[in-house]
């Protein structure tokens, strides 16, 4: 049964929480990423986080996108991406119960290590210019961790984009 929801006639922007979390299955190809980024730019969306990796299906990749839908209706992001022939599937995970993980790798002075290890960081290597650690967590945890690093003096730090998966029941 189709639901009739009276909504304002003008497709109005929501001012709060404009971030959509999308998981895309895409065909590997020279043009795929250009076309996706082209749609995002053209439609006035804005990427807040992105990660790309192989999927289980040969010849296909998984892209996780955190995206601001700008002045368009929220669901436009999914619909516009689905028009691309390179995009096989778009799953909107916004607001769902998900695992949302990001990775951070940082090099710090050896003396600063303890506090970080206590938070769950793992040592990757130790050298004369410092120790390199990795930490993964959800966006908030990673942000906290990076704040913590900042307090101790970071020699170098890199962060990944998010990978998001719906929690199994």
């Amino acid at each position: 049964m189709l639901e009739i929801k009276p909504k304002p006639a003008v497709a109005a922007p929501q001012t709060h929480n404009r971030i959509r979390v999308l998981s895309l299955l895409v065909v590997d190809g020279q043009n795929t990423l250009t076309k996706i980024s082209g749609v995002i730019r053209r439609r006035g969306f804005h990427v807040r986080g992105i990660s790309v990796g192989p999927s289980r299906q040969p010849g296909h990749s998984r892209i996780t996108l955190q995206i601001d839908h700008g002045h368009a209706e929220a669901d436009q992001v999914r619909k516009q991406l689905e028009r691309l022939v390179e995009v096989v599937e778009v799953e909107d995970l916004t607001g769902d119960d998900v695992h949302n993980r990001e990775l951070v790798v940082a090099t710090v002075a050896a003396s600063e290590l303890d506090a970080l290890l206590k938070r769950g960081a793992k040592v990757l290597s130790t050298g004369s210019d410092g120790t390199t650690v990795e930490f993964s967590g959800d966006a908030d945890q990673v942000a906290d961790f990076v704040n913590e690093l900042a307090r101790h003096g970071i020699i170098d730090v890199v962060r990944s984009g998010p990978v998001v998966m719906r929690k199994s029941e």
Binding site: P8, A12, E73
Partner: peptide, 20 residues
């Protein structure tokens, strides 16, 4: 009541939000 019929799903609500 706005009714919108189109073969392209992305047209729905792109400019005018239909009720049907």
């Amino acid at each position: 009541t706005f009714i919108h019929v189109d073969i392209d799903e992305s047209e729905m609500g792109k400019n005018v939000r239909p009720h049907i």
